[in-house]
Structure formats: C-alpha cells, structure tokens
Design a protein around this nucleic acid. Sequence first.
RNA 1: CGGGAUGUAGCGCAGCCCGGUAGCGCGCUUCGUUCGGGACGAAGAGGCCGCAGGUUCGAAUCCUGUCAUCCCGACCA
Length: 533
Amino acid sequence: MQCSSYWFCPDVWTAVILLILCRFRGCVSHLKINKYYTIKSEMAKDFPTRAENYAQWYNDLVIKADMAENSAVRGCMVIKPYGYAIWEKMQAALDKMFKDTGHVNAYFPIFIPKSFFSKEASHVEGFAKECAVVTHYRLKNDPDGKGVVVDENAKLEEELIVRPTSETIIWDTYRNWIQSYRDLPLLINQWANVVRWEMRTRLFLRTAEFLWQEGHTAHATAEEAIAETEQMLNVYADFAENFMAVPVLKGVKSPNERFAGAVETYCIEALMQDGKALQAGTSHFLGQNFAKAFDVQFLSKENKLEYVWATSWGVSTRLMGALIMAHSDDHGLVLPPKLAPTQVVIIPIYKTNEQLAAITEKVDIIVKNLKAKGITVKYDDRDTYKPGWKFNEYEFKGVPVRLAIGPRDLENGTVEVSRRDTLEKSSFQIADIETKIEHLLQSIQDNLFQKAVDFRENMTTKADTWEEFVDLLDNKGGFILAHWDGTPETEQEIKEKTKATIRLIPLDARPEEGRCILTGKPSSRRVVFARAY
RNA sequence: CGGGAUGUAGCGCAGCCCGGUAGCGCGCUUCGUUCGGGACGAAGAGGCCGCAGGUUCGAAUCCUGUCAUCCCGACCA
C-alpha cells in the first residue's frame, strides 16, 4: 500500500482513534497573592512573575526552561530532553523503591478489548467518557485525491480501547497466573503511557497522553492488600518529601473522589504556591471488585476457593508539575538537587585562550573530584555563549549550584559559588571544594523542603463557620480544615458553591467533635478542603 | 455544543478600515570588537500572508465558504 502523506506512515496497519464524547473540565481558578512571591527581576526577560499571572508563569516556565512543549496533537505534549531527564531521575528513584519493596516490572498492552471495560461497573462509568477507541486497522489512498482515508473494509470486529489505566487487561491476565495461595502475593509494576481524552489540558498537569507507573498487586487476604496499599502510599510520600522536597498530606479520598472501581482510595496531596492543592499520587485498595469481575480465584491453604484481594497505585508525569510549582520562583525553575539532571555547573570566565587553558586545568580536577562523590557536574566551556548568558540560562533551568572561575579566582585560589534556591553568591577556597559542594547540595535539598513545609503550615487554616470557610477560599487559599457531616450530598453542594473539594480525610486525624461547615450536622473529625488542580 | 477572538519568517507581532505584489523585534548566518549577570557594530539568509473559490488590470488587504487554534460557558477520577 502506498502512502502519499508524509506525516503518516502505515506499514502494516494503522489505528484510527475516535474521540468518544467530550468532557468538560472545571475552569482553572483565580490566583492568590501571598508573601512568598518575590519581586520581579529584570533578568527574567518577558517572564511573568507568579503574582502577575500564576498560570502564565507556569506555562512559560515549562516552555522556556525547555522541559516540554505542545505537540501537533491537541492535548498531547512533547517532553523535551531536559524535562525528560528530570522524569528519568524520578523514575530511577521510584523504581528502586518499588524493587526494594519486592515488586517487579512487566509490560501489558496499550490496547484493551472494549468488552473488558464493561466487566466492572463503576470502572466503566468512571472512564468511559474519556476513552480513545481504535475502530480500524488500515488506511488506503483516497480514491478522490491526495492523502489517505480510513479503509472501511478494515473495521475491527471488536473495538479496542487505548488504556486510560490497565486494571482490566491486567486482571484478565492475572486470572491465568493465579491458582493457589502459593502464587500470591503477586507484586507487579509497569511503566507505561496512558490516554485520557481531556478537554482542558496543561503541560504536565493534565495532558491527554501521559507517562506513569501503575502497580497492580494481588493478595490472599484483605489485610495484606490494605497493608500493601498503605505501604505504597508511604513510598510515595517518602519520595515526594525526600526527593522532590515537597511535603504531602496523607489520607483517604471521600467516596466522591474515589477511584472508579476502588473500595478505598488513599492519596498524597501537595500544596502549590498559588494555594491550590495537587493530588500527587494515589494508592487504591480494590477489594475483590476486579477479582470478581475477572474471576480471579485461588485455593487457600484451607483448600477453599477464594477471590483474591487487589491493589493498584500510580504516580504520573503530573509530578513534574508539582515539582515545578512547589519550588520555582520568578527567576525560573528551582530544582531539588536529588532530581536535578545537572547538580553543579561550572562556568569559566576568560578572555584569552591561555586563561581558558589555565582555568580548564583547575576545573578538570574539580570535575573529577565531584564525580567521585557521585555529583553530576557539567563544565560549560562553550565559547559560543558569554558567561552572563550562561548564568541566566542555568539559573532559569534551576541548576542547584553554579561555580564560576575566572582569572581573579586563579590568583586567589577561589571559586565563586552560587546557590539557586537563595540566589546567594559566595567565594570558596578551591581546596576541598567537593566536600563543601556536597554539603551545600544537601543543605539546598533541606532548605527547599523546609521552605515548602513552612509555606504549607502558613497556608493551612481551620474554618468553623461557612463565612469563614468561603472567605478563606477566596482570600487566602491553601488547605482548610473543616468539619463535614460525611455525606456525598454535602460534599457535592460545597463543591458546587465554592469549587472546593475534600482533598482527603487525614490518616492521622485526631477525633474532634464539631459541626458540619455547611449543614451544621455533627461531625467527629476535620477533613481537608481546598481548590485543586 | 453555544458565545468571543485569532491564523502574515523559527518565535512574538504590525500591515487589512482606505487593494498596487510584505515589514518590525527576537532568534539564525558571516566578520570584527567584546567576555566577572542575557554585549555592540556592520553585512546577510529566511515568507504558496491557514486553505479553497469569487470580485478586480491587480488581493495579505474586499466577498463567500472551509479548516485550525485559543479564550469563555453548560460541571466533572
């Protein structure tokens, strides 16, 4: 078959994807200005401050820091090398944590037979409206002119769904893998892309296609499955706090916000600088819902046939959005050292080739010693850009530490050290610099986390009356701790009135008698409300 | 699906009302001077003006159609 169109190269078959229905997404809400915003720098050319326009600031940052861009396909992004390098660091850290907790990786197909979807009722309901569907497997030359058209003769017997998540195909597969309690637990993770046909998209935060990992485990008992669900939630929280330097709240979702098909959804929730919450990871206890839907049973030690207990858990490239919004400032991206593709950049300042050679000689030693400590370092000796240009470039890209070495430093045996988080500059003696840098990186990591913790504490407020609640939402934002009568109807009504949702019911919530913020009915503990991404 | 707007160089835009064959800034190329926070000068390269019709001697500009994108709204893992 010939293909005259350069953008499409069908060799054996090609999928045609139909969009099933559109779903409206709530509009991005307003921004709040708070004291954590800094004054605009003249150096960040054409780059809005967070206070001016938070949404624009985020969009520009992602693009100008060269992390991602929009693609020819609406709603889908191209993750550029710098952005992908950060994602790879995240993957590496998470993957190790998964392996350390006994999980193994596997890969399941991107296409799911349509019939699989209808086997778990609430699961279908949750995802049906945002599924892309493959209906045909071949193109042909347009008989009337140029280009190609769908070959109507190549219609699939059964349509295929492009996975929005993989529970169905995985459980259909697990049925054949599990017969006995000896086959359990089954602890599998996969790194994959998924597609959820979103109407309103934003780079990293909500895209039609995104990258993620999804863990799917099978257990002999409910207790064990719940323990797994909680363990993975803790892994996520650990990762968020120790690698991303983003503090998170841990809790369970209200029924309204629960994953389609789950018995209980646990989540970690982070707070962004504009006072909006961002769900950063979820871990689901699926009960026996999928086991029953896909008939996955095992013989127990007692020789009884039982349905297995399941969990699933995932984090996605949305974490990139969380990372960006948590730390970055009006000068650009700020990266925690543990996730920065380049932790230290070294810039030579010179006029003559002789000076450059002398600097390079010193730098080579520093590079070698930093690398020996496991620090990723880049010596940018390009002569096609000036030092000032490079300073701005790396500052905007969030490189945690910058070293500059010029003729003056050579004379004094010093290096200019500049840290991205505080923008402070100081002069270090070159001797034993690698140890100082090592400590500096740790202190940047710690400082970013502490700043984020302080911010969250300042932005977490109790509300005891409806007026207080609304006032906080409109004028302060952040997490609001309030009483709720526990009914979905009340949550729905609050959402309709304020656009705020229950982000989670804290795992460590202390019992506290109170009255529901909306209905005045009795409540036994506070839950966390916020407007969210 | 309703309401509004926009498609002109890689990016951001002007030109359109009042038709005469396209311009500005950034970026890019070359040369020279520069180089401790985005350098300066000079010389260059780059555009079926979203697409298809129509009006006209002549269309980026006027008319019709069409496609695409963005924003706003009917409310959702």
